[in-house]
Simulated assay, not measured.
Amino acid sequence: MTDKLKVSFISINYNSSNYTIELIKSIEKFTTVAYEIIVVDNASKENDYNSLYDYVNNDSKIQLIKNTSNEGFASGNMLGTKYASGEYFFFINNDTRLLNDASSVMLEYLNIHENISLATAKVNDENGNFSSSYKLFPSITKELFGNSIARKFSKHNFPSNKIKLDKPTLVEVVSGSCMFFRASDFTNIGGFNKDFFLYCEEEDLSKRVWNYGKEVIFLPDAEIFHHSGGSSIKSFEMEREYYISYNILINQHFNKLNVIILKLLLLFKLFRRSFKRKNGWKLFLFGLKGCPKKLSLRFN
């Protein structure tokens, strides 16, 4: 390439090559800056991997990395960064697609604002409505009193994810489906924590950006579409995986007393839901056992 490489798109494929191909098409359609695409295949079935290989073969802008085992979202993305050369890393779910030149919008903003390390785009759902692009980090106040009260106690008075924002706005946690990082800052904070197999990676990364002294922002002029649950299947095992990750998250970011309180609040929530939801009792019993990591999908 004659132009200096600006953006490395990094995405994970796992038995969903049809989504990955649509994402690649959208990147090729809209992106105007110098870019590369790195797809890490997390040990998909042979026919799925071959479909993706046949599509990307001989495209100099695309690197397809084949993992011998499914190491999860965090580890897969970290593998992708080893092959990335861009000034910015655009971690994007394979079940999304660009709706405009989102990478240019976010790149131009971060170029001007050196205090920003991490950005996310406006995420749209199947009906063209704004979906969730940002949220709050877990806290005792949030668990006890809800998001509205928790926001009032926040230093930055972070916005509700239910309102329509039309200008760049600081947020506490970005959507894991769309994370645009200054590569140097990503490296300086240590990248993805491989302890997470699935879920809570965005909370952990966003929190570490704030702890690093930099900021996280939502940029509504950058837009993507996200299939709801396109790359994963909802099941008891997937719900269980979330609570394993949640426990890892709070253990790493809270002191012992707060961890105990948050775990008790989680048990109370699971107990209340046990009467109403499918697999409710199973999840409550799982919580009583402490959400052991040995039952993670990582080991199955």
Rank of each mutant, 00 (worst) to 15 (best):
M1D: 11
T2V: 03
K4M: 12
L5P: 01
L5A: 01
V7P: 10
S8M: 14
I12W: 06
T20R: 11
E22V: 13
L23N: 01
E28G: 05
V39T: 07
V39Y: 14
D41W: 03
N42L: 15
E46N: 10
E46F: 14
N47S: 14
V56G: 00
N58R: 13
S60P: 08
K61T: 00
L64Y: 05
T68S: 06
S69G: 01
N70D: 11
F73T: 12
F73Y: 15
A74E: 12
A74L: 10
S75A: 15
M78L: 04
T81K: 08
K82V: 07
E87M: 05
F90K: 00
N93R: 09
N94M: 03
D95H: 03
S103Q: 02
S104Q: 11
S104L: 15
L107S: 03
E108M: 05
N111H: 05
N115M: 10
S117P: 00
K122A: 13
V123I: 06
F130D: 14
S132L: 15
K135G: 07
K135L: 07
F137M: 07
P138E: 12
P138D: 10
I140E: 07
F145N: 05
I149L: 15
A150L: 09
R151Y: 10
S154T: 05
K155G: 01
P159Y: 06
D166P: 10
K167C: 07
K167W: 11
V173T: 08
G176T: 07
M179C: 09
F181W: 06
A183P: 01
S184D: 13
F192E: 08
F192Y: 13
N193Y: 14
D195C: 00
S206A: 02
R208W: 13
V209L: 03
V216T: 03
F218S: 03
A222T: 02
F225V: 06
H227A: 09
S228D: 08
K234Y: 01
S245P: 08
Y246L: 04
L249K: 00
Q252T: 02
L257Q: 08
L257I: 03
V259I: 11
L262H: 02
K263I: 05
F268E: 14
R272C: 14
R273H: 07
S274V: 12
S274P: 06
S274C: 06
F275H: 08
G280I: 13
W281V: 07
K282S: 14
F284S: 08
G290Y: 02
K294M: 06
